[in-house]
């Protein structure tokens, strides 16, 4: 079994367990404000790190290339309150244009 299969199955099993355990834990368990605060902050941290790594790295090396143009356009789209699909498509279109022309 290769890494992609292990990741697919492992992620799926844990994802379900987390959901199911949640349904079986008493509500007061999560009442503490610090627990709730950490719960909203973790996705922010991980997703921000993923944006950075997916845009500026290639096999453990830092790199600036056509993907930066895509990201800049995505940021502009988000500032203009564009819906999610427009953000993704405009980033892909820009990045493809730069990659194909230079």
């Amino acid at each position: 079994m290769n890494a992609f299969w292990i990741a697919t199955i492992g992620t799926s099993v844990i994802a379900f367990l987390l959901k199911y355990i949640g349904h079986n834990v008493p509500e007061r368990f999560f009442a503490h404000p610090k627990v709730q605060s950490v719960n909203t902050l973790i996705p922010i941290a991980l997703l921000s790190a993923l944006v950075a790594v997916q845009t500026f790295t290639e096999k453990s090396k830092l790199m600036i290339d056509h993907r930066l143009a895509g990201l800049v356009v995505a940021i502009i789209a988000l500032f203009l309150k564009a819906p999610f699909p427009i953000v993704v498509i405009s980033a892909a279109f820009t990045s493809a244009a730069i990659y194909n022309w230079f």
């Binding site: 845009t55 993907r67 895509g70």
Partner: peptide, 8 residues
């Protein structure tokens, strides 16, 4: 670029 844009 679509993937980091999706994360963003």
């Amino acid at each position: 670029s679509a993937v980091p844009a999706a994360f963003l």
